[in-house]
Design a protein around this nucleic acid. Structure first.
Ligand SMILES: [Mn+2]
Ligand SMILES: [Mn+2]
Length: 311
DNA sequence: TAGCACC
DNA sequence: GGTGCTAAGTCAACG
DNA sequence: CGTTGA
């Protein structure tokens, strides 16, 4: 007799709730042999590190119920029929006269439920539901374009570091799990998205002007060839960036992992994956904890940005 | 990334 | 045609 | 139409 989905399903207690898990042996990463079970076990295992970073943040999920070689889809609006204990954040849509019920992941139960739905990639907002218009960090998203290299990325990241040093600001780097690096600059949650983006753009312009041969701010992809793109427009309401400790739906199942600044020369952007991240985390602890606790004042830089009127 | 309004 | 902005499951079957 | 599963 053919197995039904019901027969494959298993109900487990995760945190405070029971979660129904299905198709655990579904191969999600064919080239690596990793299954949905591996994904769920990963997210479950790092939940104590990950959850504080997701708390109160509206999420865009990228779901791959057929695994990473099938098309995935973004999901913002919470699906009907989800467990009643999944918290949501209604946010008025810009285009339609209706709310989008963003999923909030504040418990391990919800995290595991999302993973069971094939939510490989987790993309949180830069602001929290409790303070939606005021991000609590700015991000320097450093992306190599075709024709540029990881070596180029490292140079640009170091330039970001020295610029932040000049400004007496703390930044926290992580490898993206794809090809680049994200540098988070935690701020007091009282700057608008426009201000946060102006801040990052101002810094990015300095870096481009210092090294125009290898750094670009061009929005058109074809104009970025051979250069490293500093993706400052990513700092905008409704935009998201792959979560720290989030998984990528690409070969190897890489995860986004914080690093120490002095590790930059010894790591690669996909240095960790769902099978190796936990031991790293247990050794280093959560290097991104200060991103939550640090609240920096960027008034001086913002003032200079507005006065300077770079282009 | 795709669709759409607007220039 | 280029630019800026926004959203982001779908479908079929069942009762 | 609400629910469920692929
Ligand atoms: Mn990036
Ligand atoms: Mn980017």
């Amino acid at each position: 007799m053919k197995k039904t989905a019901t027969e494959e399903a298993v109900v487990v207690r995760v945190g405070d709730h029971e979660v129904r898990l299905t198709h655990l042996d579904k191969v999600y990463w064919p080239e690596d042999g990793y299954t949905k079970r591996d994904l769920i076990e990963y997210y479950h295992s790092v939940s104590q590190y990950l959850l504080p970073h997701l708390k109160d943040r509206p999420l865009s999920l990228v779901r791959f119920p057929g695994g990473v070689s099938s098309d995935g889809f973004y999901q913002k609006d919470a699906p009907q029929g989800m467990p009643e204990w999944v918290r949501i954040a209604p946010v008025m849509s810009k285009e339609k006269e209706d709310y989008i019920n963003f999923i909030l992941c504040d418990t391990v139960s919800t995290l595991v439920w999302m993973a069971n739905g094939g939510a490989i990639e987790i993309n949180p907002w830069l602001s929290r539901y409790t303070n939606l218009d005021y991000p609590d960090f700015a991000v320097f998203d450093i992306d190599p374009s075709e024709g540029s290299t990881w070596e180029d990325v490292k140079i640009v990241v170091k330039m970001v570091k020295s610029l932040l040093d000049q400004w007496n600001l703390l930044g926290f780097p992580k490898v993206s799990g794809a090809t680049g690096v994200h540098v988070y600059v935690p701020v007091e949650p009282r700057y608008t998205y426009k201000e946060i983006q102006a801040f990052v753009k101002y810094g990015a312009q300095f870096i481009r002007d210092a090294y125009p041969e290898k750094v670009t701010l061009e929005r058109k992809v074809k104009d970025r060839f051979g250069k490293v793109y500093i993706d400052f427009p990513q700092n905008a309401r409704g935009q998201t960036i792959g979560s720290v400790y989030g998984v990528r739906a690409t070969r190897g199942a890489p995860v986004s992992m914080p690093i120490h600044w002095d590790e930059l020369d010894t790591v690669t952007p996909q240095a960790w994956n769902i099978t190796t991240a936990l031991s790293r985390l247990e050794r280093t602890g959560d290097l991104f904890l200060p991103v939550i606790s640090t609240k920096q004042n960027i008034d001086p830089v913002l003032k200079a940005a507005l006065a300077g009127q770079h282009n």
